[in-house]
Design a protein around this nucleic acid. Sequence first.
DNA 1: CTTTCGACTTTGAACGTTCAAGACCGTGGA
DNA 2: TCCACGGTCTTGAACGTTCAAAGTCGAAAG
Lengths: 327, 327
Amino acid sequence: MAEKVTIATVAAHAQVSRQTVSNVLNSPHIVREETRRRVEEAIAALGYRANQAARQMRTGRSHLLAVRIEPTRDGINGSVLDRFLHGLTFAAAAAGYRVMLYTADGDGDEIKTFDDLLASYDLDGFVLTGTDHGDVRTFWLAERDVPFVTFGRPWDAPERHSWVDVDNADGTAQATRRLIETGHRRIAFIGWPAGSGVGDDRRDGWQRTMKAYDLDPAGLDRGASDSIPNGAECARDLLTMPDAPTAFVCASDSLALGALQAAGGRKAVTGFDDTPVAQAVGLTSVSQPLPEAAARCIDLLIHHLDGSPTGTHQVLLQPSLVVRTTA
Amino acid sequence: MAEKVTIATVAAHAQVSRQTVSNVLNSPHIVREETRRRVEEAIAALGYRANQAARQMRTGRSHLLAVRIEPTRDGINGSVLDRFLHGLTFAAAAAGYRVMLYTADGDGDEIKTFDDLLASYDLDGFVLTGTDHGDVRTFWLAERDVPFVTFGRPWDAPERHSWVDVDNADGTAQATRRLIETGHRRIAFIGWPAGSGVGDDRRDGWQRTMKAYDLDPAGLDRGASDSIPNGAECARDLLTMPDAPTAFVCASDSLALGALQAAGGRKAVTGFDDTPVAQAVGLTSVSQPLPEAAARCIDLLIHHLDGSPTGTHQVLLQPSLVVRTTA
DNA sequence: CTTTCGACTTTGAACGTTCAAGACCGTGGA
DNA sequence: TCCACGGTCTTGAACGTTCAAAGTCGAAAG
């Protein structure tokens, strides 16, 4: 059908050389006004679009970013990634970049994939989600000067690399404050076992808020791995206390759902992540600004790519409490 | 750090020409056994990986596939796409392809994106999800001989292009059969308004099964757009009937959740899609084999790319009923 | 002994772009 | 008048790969 339109086609049509067309695209200021207009008209008339592969060969820049897509971890929280991905793709497109997906089985496999993607496709950068303590992946990438941004901060050394994160403590603080303001005094926290950065942060938010209101959090704290049954068990355990809690702040919607089941709907419960499940059952939950987080990730990444490679940058976003029927 | 390893590096190391290395990679059979081994050793020793951009320039094949990522439609069903995407990425990687994401606002915008992706990145093919009746996108792609596969069949002309789909009717049939076998006789269907291929198909499965067991489906059928409140309203409406239903087969987990709320847990309910919400609340639901569907999409697409371009192929997969506490 | 053939390998060119360097041209200072 | 200069544009080369065509060599055929 349409013959392939290359820079040469445009050049011929506008009566200039290849390089001038290239200049119009990449350094418009060095081209004379009138020439530039003529070339731009030719580009529009012919529907020319630069071939990325050829450009990449010369410049070494692919305009491709990679993100890992994980096999829906626990079913409930999976859709967080979904929304984040959409935001990334959208923001990347606006900046002239495209998002490529990859899968991996564990960190070791992921590093092998990094290597492969970099060698084969010359990827410009990575967005990592779900970073661990002392994440090997970040060291591998940093060592090779591969630009990357993580969604989730490195808890051991906040300034080691650029990241975007949501203020988890503020999320549970908001939830706790809301419960206190609606009259609750005995407010329990159901979270994950101590040791995970995110989990500890969410616990902190609850604890600090309790203390700020002169409420004693002692004994009202439980930890278990993320699942509905575990949430239910923790809640049941808390309810057998002498001075049993009247409300539960939970570190995830899964745990919250368990608490909700155990409490039979008679207690106030808040979750975290505002997953579709929360929307479905009317669970009050802390919502992360995912589209904005994604956009900031792209911002930071592109800043690394285009701008000065000086230093790292951090962005901390505030979550918001979505109040529904359970609190 | 590591100097760039090109085909020339490998050639020098193995004492052969560039072309021989290329042949080892692309047509090993025309290279002498011993030479091939030597080249392969050099490749391994140097960690060589073909540069896709350069390869693409010569061959016109990018080894890139594109999928649209949508802004989580209704919140509940969103995660279906998530799981499908993971399957696609995984299957594509196994076949030497990578998956690129794009977003679009409506079909018109999507076509503009097609154009852009094809011109800029030389995409090899597309996977489309959620096709409508007489989908403009499929015509546009077919007209330009761009390989594509849809997940979801074209209801007006099943053989117009290649597709992979799940047998929706079989899903609701399984659900209905299960309810009948557990003693229910008055089984209602809550679906979408007539006119959508998928929705009609799901209704058919229920209706046919009812008739197969000599049960009269008349009057037991409701339609509303997908949401929890709508599901609840349909269920309430059905429950006011003289000979009220004891069970509800629903076309989605959202509707099922509504029915569940309206029926107060006293009636049997089945949903569709086995979303995280269903898992969370114990809803019996029809599960689509998403990883397999994704793999088959990739199969078909690659068959179009590598093999003979003769004709189209169709794959219909069977869903399975995940029995939980609600039925 | 020469020719032909086949198996294998190499060479030059090309894909579409941008970099580096050079060419052109009119202006202004010496 | 001549030259240097800055602004503008053009030319050749290169990125890493594969295609097309040509080269090499030993063995079989004439």
